[in-house]
Amino acid sequence: MKCPSCSRPVDHEADTCYSCGFSVAQVQRIYGRDLLPMARISDTAHCLRKRDRDDLDEIMDRLQNRFPQLLFCSYLTTLENAAEIPSLGFWLVNHARVKGSEYARPNENALMVIVDLTNKQIGFSLGYFAEYLLGEEDAHRTLQAARPYLVNGDYGRALITLYKKLGRVLSRRARVLKKNQRQGRKPDYEIQNVPNLLDVPNHQPFPASAADNVPEEATVELPPILDPMIR
């Protein structure tokens, strides 16, 4: 678990980053505190054709049928700063309200694919439960499967390949979990909670004033990409 801002390791129960004091309040100051209604495939960069969207819809339907607890969504955008994409993903998973998602698919089960066409980056923003299901290595392998199509600019094909690969990874993960459960092993979540081997400074709670500085009814100026969607 890393901080979206400084990429330093963060304890799984820390309210703020040990290193930079990053928390959800900081991204709320940038993107706002309101919920963001969005479609399952949000193409704000307009890089997907209709056929691609149809194919993508089909594969995502199959994915959701296979994994009814999980929420799959894609967000294609253009960002000015390459460092924004983790924090944007962090904010989106916490504030997006995906159309069609039911109560059984809360955002903590979300696997959101974010593509930044400007900086040519792609990544998974994961909810809490999705973090447990999709490890870093598996997620990277899944992204690698789509990389050839991304390089060629075939974003529709890239996302389809990515979701197919993601389905296989999750199926394998489900088998492992089922096997562990049968053998009475502890869940991986507890196993992964190992002492931090990195030189992380002692946790000093970030000043509360910084997080609570944002007024409740304040108007947040959203980036131009997100602004039209909210309206």
Partner: peptide
């Protein structure tokens, strides 16, 4: 999957900023 109750992190209600990305 087996439901698990996960603790919150970095103040996020649904996500603690878990992100895995790469550049193409």
């Amino acid at each position: 999957f087996q439901e698990l109750s996960m603790p919150n992190r970095l103040g996020g209600e649904f996500s603690g900023g878990g992100f895995v990305g790469m550049s193409y």
